[in-house]
């Protein structure tokens, strides 16, 4: 086994090479995230369809997607896409990753939306019905504006989690920082420095975002003062 020790020359040689992939990594994270945010609504509304059998199918489909490895799902989408009748072209790695990771995380996002919608007070639903709102207006003007903002910190956490799952896409050939580091390692037989760079980049980006989201959480909690709601409910129960 030939081993080389830490070398700053290699480090600074690898740094610009690995950084070439940063744009792709960040771009992929944002695209996947937007996809998941939008697709999450699809799950939420599919689950609200008032049919027991349909509901059961949707619930277990979500459970299936959520409890199987995203890596395998990426492979599946990458190889299955051209086999869909009438498609006949290969999906490029970036698009496969958006679809794969996007759908995977949309199941989590859908659950978050659901918890937000369920936490909207029953009186709000009744009031919107009493005021004769149409279904669209009810969701657009009453329910969603109250349901979504309190879930923003949780959604933010999933942004960070997704950022950390994005290097999986390097396996199907998305040229993010992970693939760049592996390429550099294979070309120069020096994995230590490029992989360390990748680690540092992840830490440098995810740690401050986590701190930021914690702050946001505190702010949201005071703004939507959940305790106040709980207290008033308890008061109602006593009376």
């Amino acid at each position: 086994m030939n081993f080389t020790y830490w070398s700053w020359d290699t480090f600074f040689d690898a740094l610009p090479f690995v950084l070439q992939g940063l744009g792709i990594t960040v771009g992929l994270t944002i695209t996947c995230y937007l996809f998941a945010l939008i697709f999450g609504f699809v799950w939420t509304f599919l689950r609200r369809v008032p049919n027991k059998l349909f509901n059961w199918v949707v619930t277990w489909t979500m459970e299936f997607i959520r409890s199987t490895p995203p890596l395998v799902q990426l492979f599946f989408i990458y190889y299955a896409w051209p086999m869909i009748p009438g498609v006949g072209f290969t999906l490029n790695p970036f698009a496969s990753a958006v679809l794969g990771l996007g759908i995977h995380f949309s199941t989590y996002v859908g659950e978050i939306y659901r918890s937000g919608i369920e936490s909207v007070d029953k009186g709000q639903w009744e009031a919107s019905r009493a005021l004769n709102f149409t279904t669209v207006d009810k969701w657009k003007k009453i329910i969603l504006p109250q349901a979504i903002p309190p879930t923003i910190p949780m959604l933010g956490n999933y942004f960070i989690i997704m950022f950390k799952e994005v290097p999986l896409a390097s396996i199907i050939g998305v040229a993010g920082i992970m693939l760049m580091a592996n390429t550099y390692g294979a070309q120069n037989w020096a994995y230590l420095e490029p992989l360390t760079i990748v680690g540092i980049i992840f830490l440098a980006l995810s740690y401050p975002s986590a701190v930021l989201i914690k702050k946001l959480e505190v702010k949201m909690n005071t703004r939507f003062d959940k305790n106040a709601v709980v207290k008033s409910n308890q008061k109602g129960a006593v009376m």
């Binding site: 290097p167 390097s170 992970m178 592996n182 994995y191 230590l192 992989l195 680690g199």
Partner: peptide
Amino acid sequence: TSLIVQLFWLYYAVPM
């Protein structure tokens, strides 16, 4: 950092 980075780091970098 993500699991895949840590796995590769332990696999390739630690021995080096």
